[in-house]
Amino acid sequence: MLDNWHDGIVADLAQEIICGKTPSTKKAEYYGGDTPFITIPDMHGCVYNVKTERYLSQRGVKSQPKKTLPPNSVCVSCIGTAGLITLVSEKSQTNQQINSIIPKEGISPYYIYLLMQTKSEIINKLGQSGSTIVNLNKTQFGKIKIIIPSLNIMQKFNDICSPLFEKILLNQKENIRLAVLRDGLLPKLMSGELDISNIDI
């Protein structure tokens, strides 16, 4: 191993690893607010979680405050469809199928995100343990072996990646805004409510 890299485990990168939890679905007042509640279907085909199927109310969030993730936490699915990786775009919570890494100070979330991408197949295989159901718990997840660069290299890597990931996040948010605009305008165009025949293109 080079002097500026060393062997380690996932837990070495984390201020904390949080396994999510689902607030009681019997309490309707826990849902319908503004805090994203990330589940596996929300993790497909995206770098950042910018939209979720369900949202938690303030009461839902307060029912399990230790499960709240700050922006740029790294979510990794570890049960069912294991090995999906996304970044958190705003304060969020997840269900119990997801382990999330809150990076230590000085550790680039982008390094963790890309590193976890390379470990996706390993995460899936580790969870199988001879069973058809993939279930990799928080302790096992934290012990996955990795290599870690020096803080100097980590900082340089972060400086390069940060503007690129910020652009990705902005593009994802803009795509959602445009999709909402399209979905609002298209029915009006189809029904004739909006007349664009006199627009000079």
Rank of each mutant, 00 (worst) to 15 (best):
E53G: 15
E166Y: 04
A28I: 09
F141W: 05
S191Y: 06
T68L: 15
I147C: 07
I98W: 01
Q128L: 07
N95S: 08
K167Y: 07
L69T: 04
V47L: 00
I98Q: 03
R177D: 14
L185F: 10
K67A: 11
H44S: 08
F37V: 01
Q172Y: 05
N175S: 13
L87E: 07
P187D: 06
I101E: 02
D195S: 10
T39F: 05
K188P: 02
Q140D: 15
D195N: 15
E29N: 15
I9R: 08
L136A: 03
K156V: 01
R59D: 01
A179F: 01
K167L: 12
Q117G: 03
N137H: 14
I40V: 13
F165L: 03
E105M: 14
I176R: 05
D34C: 04
S89R: 03
S150W: 11
Q96N: 10
G20D: 02
Y111C: 08
S129C: 08
G83E: 00
N4M: 13
S63L: 09
K156H: 06
D7R: 14
K119W: 08
C161T: 08
T52M: 07
A82V: 05
D195I: 11
V50H: 01
Y111A: 07
T22K: 12
D34Y: 02
S24C: 06
I107D: 00
G192W: 14
G192I: 14
L2E: 10
Y113M: 08
S57A: 09
L170I: 10
R59F: 00
M154A: 10
S131Q: 08
